[in-house]
């Protein structure tokens, strides 16, 4: 038996919106400690990892670890049938080939349920090393979304360079070029808007804007985002979800520029 109750459908809706355009099918690994997901896009350029800790749920029970193979587009269609403030219970009996979605309104006067067929997904799990990053930047997620979207008007890839002057995002295209520079915030009157830059070593890498735009669909999940860069290593873009877990993306760099 597996059972997990989300206090609000909205969280699960936001998570799906953040993942479903990158990955079609994924295994939700459900263990005693929580739910995890790791999946690459078809081109193996980006990877998404999700952690939802068991203690972040209203109710969480896993008798035996379960791997739920789910088509995210189908799950997203089902989740659209839930009101944002409905509770969502996912459950699966041992040996069953479906997972049940139970939606309950806050005053318990409406209940609906959907059963989704599970799939056998043969996915490869990658070992992600705990790297020491050359630079780490924390900023409002809306700011990152704006930069990525603004620069996409001029080209396909962005060069991110971290130096003593701050972090610079540069785009070059057929029509011209553009750049945005962010500097370490001084003063602490609005901590939620602050930009924090930790540079262990200057670093410069190029990344496809198409993927960064998809990652920024997770902005509604978290007011703040961390981006971590190392020379010749994938970029890490991390959205923390307060007490429940995180949604992280890794993006392989463009090389030979």
């Amino acid at each position: 038996m597996f059972e997990a109750r989300f206090p609000e459908a909205l969280l699960l809706k936001k998570i799906l919106e953040s993942v479903k355009d990158l990955v079609q099918d994924a295994n939700f690994e459900c263990t005693e400690s929580g739910i995890t997901l790791q999946a690459m896009d078809n081109a193996h350029v980006s990877l998404v990892t999700l952690l939802l800790r068991g203690e972040g749920f209203d109710l969480y029970r896993v008798d035996k670890p379960e791997s739920l193979g789910i088509n995210l587009n189908s799950m997203s269609k089902i989740m659209r049938c839930a009101a944002n403030n409905d509770t969502v219970t996912l459950d699966k009996l041992e040996g069953a080939d479906t997972v049940r979605f139970l939606f309950e309104s806050p005053n318990a006067d409406r209940m609906s349920e959907f059963h989704l067929k599970l799939m056998d997904i043969d996915s490869e799990t990658l070992e992600i090393p705990e790297s020491m990053y050359h630079a780490e930047i924390e900023l409002p997620s809306a700011e990152l979304r704006r930069i990525v979207s603004d620069l996409s008007t001029m080209g396909d890839s962005v060069r991110i360079s971290v130096s003593k002057e701050g972090v610079r995002f540069t785009v070059r295209g057929d029509e011209g070029s553009g750049s945005v520079i962010l500097r370490q915030s001084t003063g602490v009157d609005k901590p939620e808007e602050a930009i924090h830059i930790v540079m262990n070593e200057p670093v410069e890498q190029s990344f496809a804007l198409k993927y960064l735009n998809l990652f920024c669909k997770a902005a509604p999940l978290s007011a703040r985002v961390q981006i971590k860069l190392s020379k010749d290593a994938p970029l890490l873009v991390n959205f923390s979800m307060n007490n429940i877990g995180y949604l992280s993306y890794y993006l392989a760099p463009k090389i030979g520029d």
Binding site: V45, T125, L126, E127, A208, P234, A252, K254, G256
Partner: peptide, 14 residues
């Protein structure tokens, strides 16, 4: 011209 690398180059399969 920059080429897109793949994640498999950096992370190994478990």
């Amino acid at each position: 011209v920059a080429n897109q690398s793949r994640l498999d180059t950096f992370f190994k399969a478990k």
